[in-house]
Amino acid sequence: MRLLQIIDKYHDGGGKERFLYDLTQKIRANDSETAVICLDYSGTSIWGGEIGCEMMTFDKAWRDNVQAFKPDALLWHVSPNTTDEVKELALKYPLFSIVHNVTCPAGTRLFRDKDEICMCSTGLKCMVNWYVRRCGINKAPKEAFRLFKKSQATHDLFKQSKAIYVATQAMKQSLEWEGIDPNQIKLFDITLGSLTDVGPINNVTRQDTILNILYVGRLSYNKGVQYLISAISELKTRGIDIACYIVGGGWYEDRLINLVEDKELRQFIHFIGKVDSVKIKQYYQNADIVVVPSIWYEAAGLVVPEARQAGKPVVVFDSGGLSEWSHMMNHIYVAKRKDSFDLANTILTAKEQRHTEYNDNLFRTMYTDIYQDLLEQDCENYL
Rank of each mutant, 00 (worst) to 15 (best):
M1P: 00
L3F: 02
I7E: 08
I7H: 04
K9I: 02
K16I: 00
R18C: 07
L20P: 04
L20F: 05
Y21K: 07
Y21I: 04
L23G: 00
T24L: 06
T24V: 09
K26P: 00
I27H: 03
D31M: 03
T34D: 03
K60C: 02
W62I: 01
W62G: 01
Q67H: 09
L74F: 09
W76S: 09
W76P: 09
V78Y: 04
S79A: 11
T83N: 05
T83L: 04
E88L: 13
L89S: 05
K92I: 11
Y93S: 02
Y93P: 02
N101P: 00
C104W: 04
C104V: 07
A106E: 11
F111N: 14
R112W: 01
I117P: 05
C120R: 15
C120S: 15
T122R: 13
C126M: 12
V128E: 03
W130R: 11
C135L: 01
N138D: 08
N138S: 07
E143N: 02
K149G: 00
K149A: 08
S151Q: 04
T154P: 00
D156L: 10
Q160W: 06
S161C: 07
S174N: 11
W177I: 14
E178A: 08
I180F: 13
D181I: 01
K186C: 11
S194H: 07
G199W: 06
N203F: 01
N203H: 03
N212E: 08
N212T: 10
I213W: 12
G217P: 12
Q226I: 10
Q226W: 04
L228A: 14
I229F: 14
L235N: 13
R238S: 14
D241W: 05
I246V: 15
G248A: 13
G249A: 15
W251T: 11
R255D: 15
E261W: 06
D262M: 11
F271I: 01
K279R: 07
V292Y: 03
I295C: 05
W296D: 05
G301M: 10
F317K: 02
L322R: 05
S323F: 14
E324P: 13
W325S: 04
H327S: 14
M329Q: 13
A335E: 11
A335M: 12
K336G: 03
R337Q: 12
K338S: 14
K338G: 01
S340V: 06
F341Q: 09
L343N: 03
I347F: 09
K351P: 00
E352L: 12
E352Q: 14
T356S: 12
N359C: 06
D360I: 03
N361H: 12
N361F: 08
R364C: 07
Y371M: 09
Q372R: 11
Q372E: 15
L375M: 15
E376A: 09
C379M: 12
Y382H: 09
